[in-house]
Simulated scan of single mutants.
Amino acid sequence: MTTSTPSPRRALVTGGSGDIGGAICRRLAADGLHVLVHANSRLDRAEAVAAAIVEAGGQARAIAFDVADGDAARAALETVLADGPVQVVVNNAGIHDDAPLAGMRESQWKRVIDVSLHGFFHVTQPLLLPMARTRWGRIVSVSSVAAVLGNRGQANYAAAKAALHGATRSLAREMASRGITANVVAPGVVAGAMAADAFPAEAIRQMVPAARAGTPEEVAAVVAFLCRDEAGYVNGQVIGVNGGMG
């Protein structure tokens, strides 16, 4: 008599083709999840992350849609749900478009909030009821230390990410009885293409008590823990990964 191996839980990581997103995808795949690596327009980058995961023995595939476009997101997720529920959602997609508020264009304000905040709703909401039927789920949103401390030139980004904190705490209360947790990971300065342009090494030493940038893998490790069974009683929390910045 043979017994079939249960299918792995599926995880969707938005913005999965970037530095932090890619590290999260690789870590979740190493933990045995089937990872849906999301990108917006750069499907080739998501495909490269998925291919590397498969080559390393994991399970992954790429998916592309604009999280800020509710209709496009819903259509893409309907296709995903045709294969079963998604039980792990990592809302990592986000963009910068920095300017002092006094000189910020309305388009800068709206696009940043569209991606980080409206994108959270467009991706998470359609997945909740199928997830709830399984009585198990993990929702992790990637925020920023800017949402806690503020940052010059980033009123739009800080507002969008801080809104995730309130939404997550509310969602945690709504879904906890169904075995679903919702938490936020708020990184500080993390090494990668974005930080390299914005933060010279000397500025990092002055800003960060740890006197260094974090790594994408350090952020991914915290996200991965929150997605495990062992983290079932951690719910509605904002966890900083910032070298002591606050």
Results as ranks from 00 to 15, higher is better:
167 A>Y: 07
178 R>I: 13
63 I>V: 12
151 N>D: 12
154 Q>V: 01
207 M>D: 11
191 A>K: 11
43 L>Y: 08
9 R>K: 13
54 V>F: 07
240 G>V: 13
210 A>T: 09
106 E>C: 13
152 R>L: 15
113 I>T: 13
110 K>I: 15
122 H>W: 05
135 R>C: 11
238 V>G: 12
41 S>C: 11
56 A>G: 07
76 A>L: 03
147 A>Q: 10
93 A>Q: 06
21 G>H: 03
20 I>V: 03
205 R>E: 14
50 A>V: 01
225 F>K: 03
86 V>C: 08
72 A>W: 02
104 M>S: 11
99 A>F: 12
46 A>V: 02
140 V>E: 03
136 W>L: 06
94 G>R: 07
184 V>L: 10
49 V>A: 06
95 I>G: 09
169 R>K: 15
66 D>M: 04
141 S>G: 04
14 T>F: 07
233 Y>E: 02
47 E>Q: 09
160 A>P: 04
212 R>L: 05
164 L>Y: 09
192 G>S: 03
30 A>H: 00
66 D>H: 00
94 G>T: 05
110 K>M: 15
88 V>L: 02
120 F>Q: 10
211 A>C: 15
209 P>L: 01
172 A>L: 08
136 W>R: 08
208 V>W: 06
56 A>Q: 07
194 M>R: 10
150 G>R: 07
22 G>N: 04
184 V>E: 05
142 V>S: 02
83 D>Q: 13
158 A>C: 06
125 Q>K: 14
94 G>I: 10
175 M>H: 13
200 P>H: 04
169 R>Y: 12
41 S>K: 11
223 V>P: 01
204 I>R: 04
12 L>S: 02
192 G>M: 09
17 S>V: 08
177 S>V: 12
151 N>T: 11
156 N>S: 04
214 G>K: 10
135 R>T: 10
221 A>Y: 06
116 S>C: 13
85 P>L: 04
45 R>K: 14
102 A>F: 12
99 A>M: 11
149 L>E: 12
157 Y>K: 03
27 R>G: 02
153 G>I: 05
124 T>C: 03
189 V>F: 11
234 V>M: 10
175 M>G: 11
158 A>L: 08
136 W>Y: 00
70 G>H: 05
182 A>F: 04
121 F>P: 08
92 N>A: 07
102 A>R: 13
209 P>V: 01
161 K>A: 09
1 M>V: 14
135 R>V: 08
134 T>Q: 14
81 L>G: 01
157 Y>H: 04
47 E>M: 01
212 R>C: 08
45 R>E: 13
117 L>T: 09
235 N>P: 05
240 G>Y: 14
11 A>P: 00
192 G>I: 08
245 M>T: 00
132 A>W: 12
173 R>Q: 13
41 S>E: 12
60 A>M: 07
132 A>D: 13
190 V>W: 11
103 G>K: 11
163 A>P: 11
227 C>L: 02
95 I>E: 07
236 G>T: 00
53 I>W: 05
80 V>K: 06
180 I>T: 02
47 E>T: 06
